[in-house]
Amino acid sequence: MPVWLTGFFFLVIIFSHTLAMATQGKLVITGSSTMAPLVAEIGKRFETLHPGTRVDVQTGGSSRGIADAVNGLADIGMASRALKPQEHTLHGAIIAYDGITLILHQDNPVHELSNEQIKAIYTGAITNWKTVGGLNAPITVINKAEGRSTLELFLQHFSLSNRQIQAHVVIGDNEQGIKTVEGNPHAIGYVSIGTAQYDATHGVPIRLLPLQHIPATLETVRNGTFPLSRPLTLVSKAPPTELAQTFIEFSQSPAVHDLILKQYFVPLP
């Protein structure tokens, strides 16, 4: 074999190898359990568009997502909140919005609660539905476990500390809260609007409460008028790696809007 031919083959091998290296790669994404199902779907679509890449999505909460992005355990972290000022060294990209809503059982005659009433119910100042115009029945207060971003956002919005809350039930994920309200007509809880609206339209007997007269719907979250809403953020080291950057841009593009809507989140305008 002539020398030039050997050299040519050698070059071809090197070149194809670097090409493969460019498209091959693994993205580890960890964090918010609210975002994980959505990002996993986006990841599947991303894998089909970029053969050879693998997107590995793990849950663990927003705090873990940010911590993993900081210390490099994950390429991208998922945080279902805006970045805090002290986290400005990170690169954050909003991919969608989510709202938190209070839910009641459908048989509960109460249709609206003011911020003060909600606060009083959660701190144990009001313990009977009669006080807020409902039936004569004790209120069952459902709270979230420590560390969840839903709890953090709820406490922050009503300027409460977790110590003030007099809960009867502490739940882990959204679905457990919905199941608890489903089984107890006198319970009140708070969950993601996306999950709540999905279940309410699929025959689960729960009702989403409006907040400050603004109904809890996907529209009000999208246009930013619903008070208890939060951005879903992909977090990475600044600047992100090339593959991470490609994934973040893809997640923000209209190409994934159908996936976002399917999860009852609100896509970027």
Partner: peptide, 11 residues
């Protein structure tokens, strides 16, 4: 089980 996934540091 409730808090391990969300806990950091001393917690």
């Amino acid at each position: 089980a409730l808090e391990m996934a969300y806990a950091l540091g001393n917690h």
